[in-house]
């Protein structure tokens, strides 16, 4: 056993690298988005829109795609993330931490979203399928009315902290961070979410999640602690959403209003992105995010006012043509070819 150890080890590390090949197309898309934004500054706003949708899909997919559970309250995690950034900046802007306050904001956003996911998960994940979906609808609206009604964190007037950012970092640095780095962070969060997705897929966690998505009772009898894995996916997905809310909303807009961030249509957009791209796949959310973002942007420019009327049938057609999403269907087509190694 010991004598063959070395060659086995080097072989194994090659196998391990190969396991992560499917990240290449995903990271390729994100890099391309970034480069387009850098080279054509007038495209930056489109790039940020697409980056947000990709990141939303990629983060949401860890829960929705991998477990098959639909969380209608998902946007609450982004909303709390945005509040985390707001509170983080508010509390720490006079500490002389300079740029450091942004990371305090991101970490606070992550923690608040994670905490909420623990509470929601412990209660709602005992329910199955449609019952879970119904139970989670209330979370988002509940938070909005709690903040507005209890006048928590500025109540319905929200929090505005552009001045605090300027005080801490100076006007110029604030501008660069708010208009450029906030969006780069979004791409980074999408990339981290993609990595976690693949890591889960390739480990026991992914097998457990596939099993419970397909048949929860059979999974239990096979020895899978389904509650543990569901909660793990839920928390992971929520913490990514917390960071996303902190950067793409909290940091970018330098204000948070409850009516803006606890808005259910972001959850619905996330679901559409994942279904278009392919639920539970790695590349799906990126593909879905691009497709959804581009269509929305382009149709909005071409047919202002009636874009949704045109968009809805397009989504319908895509779902009918690709019932498992674009990437889900593609994965079946390329089974047994070299491409299989790069698409997951």
């Amino acid at each position: 056993m010991i004598s063959v150890g070395k060659s086995v080890n080097s072989q194994q590390s090659i196998v391990n690298i190969k396991k992560y090949f499917p990240l290449l197309p995903v990271y390729g898309i994100y890099l391309l988005l970034f480069l387009i934004g850098i080279i054509y500054p007038e495209m930056w706003s489109v790039v940020t829109l697409l980056a947000f949708y990709c990141a939303l899909g990629q983060a949401f997919n860890i829960f929705l795609g991998m477990t098959g559970y639909v969380d209608f309250g998902y946007v609450a995690f982004l909303g709390l993330g945005a509040y985390g950034m707001a509170l983080g900046i508010d509390v720490s802007h006079q500490t002389g931490l300079n740029i450091g306050i942004i990371f305090i904001g991101i970490i606070l956003g992550l923690l608040m979203a994670t905490l909420l996911s623990l509470v929601v998960g412990a209660v709602a994940l005992r329910l199955r399928g449609a019952y879970f979906a119904i139970a989670t609808i209330g979370v988002n609206e509940g938070f909005r009315y709690l903040i507005e009604g209890a006048k928590l964190w500025g109540g319905s007037e929200g929090l505005i902290y552009f001045r605090q950012l300027n005080e801490a970092m100076g006007r110029e640095k604030t501008n660069v961070i708010v208009t450029f780095w906030a969006d780069v962070f979004v791409l980074v969060i999408a990339a981290i979410s993609a990595f976690i997705t693949l890591y889960y897929m390739r480990s026991k966690i992914g097998y457990a999640l596939t099993a419970l998505r397909e048949d929860e009772d059979a999974a239990k009898v096979m020895g899978i602690n389904v509650t543990k894995y569901k909660i793990l996916a839920f928390i992971t997905s929520a913490s990514m959403a917390g960071m996303l809310g902190a950067t793409s909303w909290g940091l970018k807009y330098t204000h948070v209003f409850p009516a803006d961030v606890f808005e259910i249509h972001y959850t619905v957009e996330g679901i559409v992105i994942i279904l278009l791209g392919g639920a539970g796949t790695l590349l799906g959310p990126a593909a879905g995010g691009l497709l959804y973002g581009l269509s929305k942007y382009w149709l909005g420019a071409m047919f202002p006012g009636i874009q949704l009327l045109i968009f809805a049938p397009i989504i319908l057609i895509i779902i009918v043509a690709f019932p498992e999403g674009i990437v889900g269907t593609m994965k079946k087509k390329i089974k047994g070819t070299v491409l299989e190694r790069y698409i997951a």
Binding site: K204, Y207, A208, T210, A211, A219, M222, G223, I224
Partner: peptide
């Protein structure tokens, strides 16, 4: 993958 799940969690 199906059969592997048995070994993985059994």
């Amino acid at each position: 993958e199906n059969v592997a799940v048995g070994a993985m969690f059994g």
